[in-house]
Amino acid sequence: MSQFPVALPSKETHLMTLSQEGPLFILHLHHKDNRFDTEFCLSILKALQIVEDYFLSSEEISDMALVTVGNDKIFSNGLDLMHALSYSPFMDVYLTMLKRMLTFCIPTVAALNGHAFAGGCMLAFAHDYRVMRSDRGFMCMNEVDLPSALHPGMAGILRHKTTPKTYRDMILQGHRFTAQQALDQELVDIICPGDQVLDQAKQLALKWAPKAKSGIVYKQLKDEMYTDIVRLLSVPFHRLAPKM
């Protein structure tokens, strides 16, 4: 078993830290503005594997949940576009990471300490619950302004977790949702001042951590809930490249 805290992907290249606080696992993303490249996505996947291994090896399943938090005023500013354009396998790695988080075996909470843009917004939506900072920061899908098309799996997550009007405003307008707007549109579960976000996220995680006692059933229920989205996230990105 891993000794916590764990520096990921390594002590030499420290992009994020996975720690344990009682029944909670805290994944702290702290690499600049947390843009996704292949190494960053693989590090998140490694963190999830460590937590799942801990979950599966427990003789008696107890309360358990995962909280993901960013750094300073940014949760994540999305994809490293230069990397995404230069390394063709990247998008499939990113989509695999979203799929893994979406269907993870224990309850998950995104602590939005600041901006969650594009790919970072997608990571937030891949969690079960979201707590957002109220005094600064936006949730935004800005593909229309980049411009960039949206992978069907990413669109599937957004359709599932938003109303048709909110989905329209998010995708066709690139609307920047404030915390209050995000709460009103049920994009997040709780809003609070920035210095309370992580604590509130932990409290929410502790509230739902007992659901992990259902064992693998929690993941099976997610697999069924998101079966259509999982299928879409599994579409290899290279098939879409000519349409981008």
Rank of each mutant, 00 (worst) to 15 (best):
E60Y: 04
A241C: 11
M154P: 06
P89G: 08
A149G: 11
M225T: 15
D92F: 09
I50D: 04
L233S: 10
M141I: 12
T38Q: 15
M16K: 10
E52T: 11
F138G: 01
N71V: 13
G194N: 11
D169S: 15
R239Y: 15
V69F: 04
T227C: 14
N142D: 06
R100M: 11
G22F: 04
G22V: 02
A205Q: 01
Y167K: 06
A209K: 01
V51L: 09
V144Y: 02
T162H: 07
T108K: 07
M16F: 11
I74G: 04
L18P: 13
P9Q: 11
Y94H: 10
S88A: 15
A65P: 00
L15N: 03
D37Q: 03
R176A: 13
L85C: 02
D63T: 06
A201S: 10
D80Y: 03
Q220V: 12
V93H: 14
D72N: 14
E39F: 00
T163L: 02
V51N: 08
K243F: 13
K207H: 07
A7W: 02
D169A: 09
F25D: 03
S62V: 02
I44K: 11
I106H: 07
I229E: 11
A209S: 12
I44E: 11
R130W: 00
M101F: 12
E186C: 00
R133L: 03
G156T: 03
Y218W: 15
F117M: 04
H238L: 13
N34T: 04
L85R: 06
W208I: 15
L48R: 06
M82C: 00
D33P: 03
D228L: 15
F40M: 07
A126I: 08
Y54W: 05
I50R: 09
T178C: 00
I216G: 05
L56E: 14
